[in-house]
């Protein structure tokens, strides 16, 4: 039974069709990694799943209805923390503005989630004062605090200095162990191999191939996947 599903989703920007009737679904507790060259439609698919883009055709459903506010969490490549708020306020913001919680209650929950990503002592810091890895962990806490049913990660480590990648991947891996349903667009092949329950290859707005990681990396069926893997490894 699929939890989050995109059915025959198409999306164009002007004359450029970025998604050609993509159908994608993920079951509860699964982790799917999406790889593919830039411009292949990975990010657009993710944005459609997060309702940040309205598909031209097709539908996105969570369970059997469209996702509600905050039900699908999204983490961006460039973190996108609110620059005018401290780390704690960033994490609280959705609880206060969307869930309408009392500030004291929201603050308590936000603290717990900052602690969860290992940043209990950084609540008062502003985004400018945090490293990229810390900012991304705050961004993950900000999405998690909304208790999403699924989390989407759009190249969460691509903007990070190499020594900061691990701390972010560790958080994502621990979420996977807890059974969080996740879709991760990534260039980290080893991460995909170890954490994902299945790996998807996208190219030119279509899903080219989907397979469990062992099979995907050792014996890819499609020529396009073989070519891509030979280039990145």
């Amino acid at each position: 039974m699929s939890l989050l599903r995109a059915t025959d989703v198409s999306k164009s920007y002007g004359d450029l069709e970025v998604l050609h009737g993509v159908t994608f679904d993920i079951e509860s507790g699964q982790v799917k990694a999406i790889i593919g060259p830039s411009g292949s439609g990975k990010s657009t698919l993710l944005r459609c799943l997060a309702l940040l883009e309205e598909p031209d055709r097709g539908a996105v459903t969570l369970g059997d209805a469209p996702p509600g506010p905050g039900e699908v969490g999204m983490v961006f490549q460039r973190f996108n923390l609110f620059q005018n708020m401290s780390a704690l306020d960033n994490v609280m913001c959705g609880l206060v503005e969307v869930r309408r919680l009392e500030k004291s209650e929201a603050r308590q929950q936000a603290r717990a989630f900052l602690d969860r990503v290992g940043l209990a002592d950084k609540g008062a810091q502003f985004p400018d004062e945090l490293s990229g890895g810390q900012q991304q962990r705050v961004a993950i806490a900000r999405a998690l605090v909304m208790r999403p049913k699924a989390m989407l990660f759009d190249e969460p480590t691509s903007a990070l200095d190499i020594e900061l990648v691990r701390e972010v991947l560790d958080v994502i891996e621990s979420l996977a162990r807890e059974g969080m349903t996740m879709v991760v667009v990534t260039h980290e092949m080893r991460f995909a191999q170890h954490v994902a329950s299945s790996v998807l290859m996208m190219d030119e707005g279509r899903i080219v191939e989907e397979a469990p990681p062992d099979q995907f990396f050792s014996a890819p069926k499609e020529e396009r996947t073989q070519r891509f893997l030979s280039l990145v490894e």
Partner: peptide
């Protein structure tokens, strides 16, 4: 203001 700020707000479900 960086458009990513609005995107992040929308992803949280903010109006």
């Amino acid at each position: 203001v960086d458009p990513g700020q609005e995107l992040a707000g929308r992803a949280l479900g903010m109006s």
